[in-house]
Simulated scan of single mutants.
Amino acid sequence: MAGLEGIEQARRPGSPAAPRWTPTVEDERALETMESHGNPVDAEVVLDSAPGAAATARRLAEIVVVAEWGLSPHLAECTALLVSELFGNAVEHTGARAVGLRMHRRPGRIRVEVRDPSRSLPCMMPAFEMEVVSGYGLLLVEKLSDRWGADLLPIGKKTWFEIRVSDR
Rank of each mutant, 00 (worst) to 15 (best):
N89A: 07
A80F: 12
T79W: 06
G88W: 05
E85Q: 14
G88V: 02
H93P: 03
L81R: 11
G70L: 07
W69D: 02
R102A: 14
A96T: 05
N89C: 09
N89D: 10
G100Y: 14
L75W: 03
L86F: 08
E85V: 04
L86R: 02
H74G: 07
E85N: 13
V99W: 00
H93W: 14
L86D: 06
R102E: 15
A90R: 01
L81I: 08
L82P: 02
A80H: 11
T94H: 09
E92R: 14
V99E: 11
F87R: 04
T94P: 02
W69I: 01
E92N: 11
L75D: 04
G88H: 06
V83T: 13
R102S: 13
L71F: 09
G100F: 09
C78D: 12
A80N: 11
L101W: 04
L81W: 05
A98L: 01
L86P: 05
A80L: 12
C78H: 03
G88A: 14
A90S: 15
G88D: 13
T94I: 02
G70C: 04
L71N: 00
L81K: 04
F87D: 03
L75Q: 04
L82H: 06
L81A: 15
C78A: 13
A76T: 02
H74D: 15
V91I: 10
A96R: 00
S72F: 01
R102W: 05
T79G: 07
G100S: 15
A90G: 13
V83I: 11
E85H: 13
G100K: 09
R102T: 10
V91Y: 01
V91E: 06
N89F: 08
S72L: 00
P73W: 02
P73Q: 08
